[in-house]
Each structure stands twice: as structure tokens, then as C-alpha cells.
Design a protein around this nucleic acid. Sequence first.
DNA 1: TACGGATCGTACCGTACGGTACGGTTCTGT
DNA 2: ACAGAACCGTACCGTACGGTACGATCCGTA
Lengths: 216, 216
Amino acid sequence: MSEMQDTFTPRQRAVLDKALGLLLEGGERALTTAGLARAANCSKESLYKWFGDRDGLLAAMISHQASKVRAQIDGGERLDLGRFRTHLVDFANDLLQVLGGDVSLALNRLAIGQASREGSRLGALLIERGRHGIDKRAGALLEAGRQRGLIAYHDRETAYHTLYGLIVRDLHVRMLLGEAGVRRPEHYAVLAEEAVDQFFVLFGVRKNETTGRDSV
Amino acid sequence: MSEMQDTFTPRQRAVLDKALGLLLEGGERALTTAGLARAANCSKESLYKWFGDRDGLLAAMISHQASKVRAQIDGGERLDLGRFRTHLVDFANDLLQVLGGDVSLALNRLAIGQASREGSRLGALLIERGRHGIDKRAGALLEAGRQRGLIAYHDRETAYHTLYGLIVRDLHVRMLLGEAGVRRPEHYAVLAEEAVDQFFVLFGVRKNETTGRDSV
DNA sequence: TACGGATCGTACCGTACGGTACGGTTCTGT
DNA sequence: ACAGAACCGTACCGTACGGTACGATCCGTA
């Protein structure tokens, strides 16, 4: 509820970046308080003073990383079908790029690994700080397309989740599992194009038809 | 390569079930060798004798669990559109049921948490022993539907991944993250129906048309 | 009954981690 | 220039875990 101000000092931000580096290198086990203090040239006492305990440090890492990549919403330029499709493809590319990035994978693995523990809020934090920005951007994009009559849907959430599924498929989980040969950034463009094509088949409005495609 | 025979003795299977129970209750941290020995009334020495080390135990748990739920492939009955659609919906329901189950979530969290470590084969094991069965079943189903002229596709893998994405969307990752309010087994049926509807829009063959729907 | 392998319960070892305490040092505001 | 806060480096503590060792016990077999 409260607009938590994650105003970390530059020093703290540098430490959090070092922590991210350790996490990327060796996973959660490599992110120890002593190791971080050594890598970041700070004292363990400062770590506990700044972040409370280890869980607080992990939460701070997520907040910090999320604050670095704020999702930008494209301003309202004249939107025709070509631009709309381009924006969707760009969104799909960005989504695959983000989900397949080292930092995103490491943080998601961290949060998922902690999800079993009772009081862990890391998963919720990750969704709140990371996913919601993406959702907003896509939601605004879909809404703009609908208002221009380029697509039609009953429920925006449903349409968005379908788009998400068409883009990501099972890639995210397989990347999280570390399956070899799944991360192919050079194929993201093709996947994005195909996904948007399929999305238009499901939700697109034909120019020479008056009725959009309705499900059920 | 070698058809590894996971023939565990009944005693070992009981121990592995106890280990699964501990994992479900308290996550990976709760699954300690001492704790398992106490819970299963066996000695730590036996654990190390049977499974080598802790990683071997985790791998054995995955193999054991996978051996319990062998995916059955439906025999070749007369396949019309109605039956085919029913089979797809059943598959979608089963998929959501499996992915949203406690055991699947716990094992996936375990494997994902270990995915950062270098030598971890848990992710590959989970895919090999768990996912491949599902993939086979779906692949056979799609192929049967294509041969009957009920659907059309260029690449079966692509079609299958699209179906998977339409069914699962982002539910799996969100369930893995432990997001509240995501696990709704009572909604699986609706999701399955909608996904299959959309799949038919994308890959279905109209009765009164000669050309199937081609992508690109 | 006697033997041997498998297993149990427990104790033990080394290590590594989270968290705390403290003296020395640097930074900052006046 | 001086005082106080913030901070660093290091040492320290308690705990918990992975893995090993060993005597006692169960059980199948001859």
C-alpha cells in the first residue's frame, strides 16, 4: 500500500550491485554475508544495519534491480495497424529479452527457491516490482489497439494472458530449470513475430468485417 | 543414454516418499540428511550407501516420483472431431492439474533452486523424466488429429508449444513463485476449454474449406 | 544354532554460515 | 580544529549441516 521509497544511498546501491554479481556467478549459496562484505569492501555490521538481515538484503536486491529497469509506456502517437503490430512485436521481443536475461533468471530462481518458506515475500515482491510494470505497458498497448478498433476482446486480462502465453510458451520455466539449448536470443525475433501473428488471428478485427472474433 | 533402471527396494521407496513429505512441508531447507533419517527411521549411513550423497538423494527423489506417474497414451479409438477435442481438453486439464500439484511444484522449486550450481543435473532430470512423457502424449494426440485432417500444422513441435502456451500461460511461474490466489483448481476446466478453443482457431481445419490455416 | 550381511541409532568431525561485538579509521557538520 | 556519527576489518559465537565411523541389532541362510 505505502509507496515504499527504495532510496538507497549510492554506497548501498553499489553493495547491492555487488550482491547481484555474486548471485549471478554462483547462485544463492554464493551470496553469503561474509562473501558480500569481502567483495564489496564493506563490513558485515553495515550490511545488517542497512538491510536488517539476510532476507532484507534479498528483498533490497529485488527492489533495487526493479528500480533500474522501469518499464516505459509509449506515448500516444497516431496508431495504425502497422504501428500497433510493431509495438506488439517490440513488446514481445522485450519480454523475451527480459525473462531470458541473466539477472531476471537469477532473481526468479532466488525467489522460487525461497517460495517454500512460510514468511517469504520475495515472490510477491518480484511480481509486484517486476511484472506489474510489464503488465501495465502491455495493458495500455492492448487498450489503445482496442479503442482504435484494431483488436477486440471481452476481458483485457484474458487477452493479455493469452498474448503472454503465445510469446513465452514454456520457455521461462525451461530457462529457469537451466535446460541446455533453450536460451537462444537470436530466435527471439522469430518467436515474437509468430506470437503476434497468432494473437491477431485470435483477437484481430478484419477490416472488411463488422464483427470481431469472439470466444465462446 | 543407458536406460537407467530406477529399481529401488521397497524400503528405499518408503524413505524417498518420506523425503518427499519433508520437502513438501518445509522446502529444501527442511530436507536434511539427519531429519530424513529421523523421519524415516533409517540411519544416515544407509542414506549415503543407497544414494551416494545429498545430490544423489535429490535425483533419486525425482526419478522415484516420475516413475509413479507414468503418462498413459490413449489407444487408437475411432477419432472424430468431438473425441479429438475432448482428448485435447482432457490433456489440458491434466497438464494444469499436474503443474499445479504440490509435488510438482516442490520438485520444480527444488530443481530451479539448484539450477545455478554448475554440476546440477536436476533440471534436466526433471524435464527428462517428467516433461517428456507429457510431450509424448500430446505429440501423439496432435499427430493423430492431423492425420485425420482435423488440424493442420507445419511443425508439430511448434504447434505443441503453442498449445502449451495457450493452456499454461504464466500460471506455472506464478505458482512457483508462490503468488497468492493463483492456484485455482476449480478454474482449470474453464481455462482448458478456452485454450483448446483458441488452439482450434489457430490450427483447426474448417470442414467446408480445402485449405488449412497456415502461419506466415 | 551359528554365521554374515544389511541396517539402525548415536556419536563424532570439520566446516561454513548468520549474526554480533569491538577497536581503529574516515567522513561530516559546525 | 574538534566531536560525533558512520563505517571498515576482523575476530568471535552458536548453530546446523554434510558426511563418516562404530558398536548393537535384526534377519535370511546353511
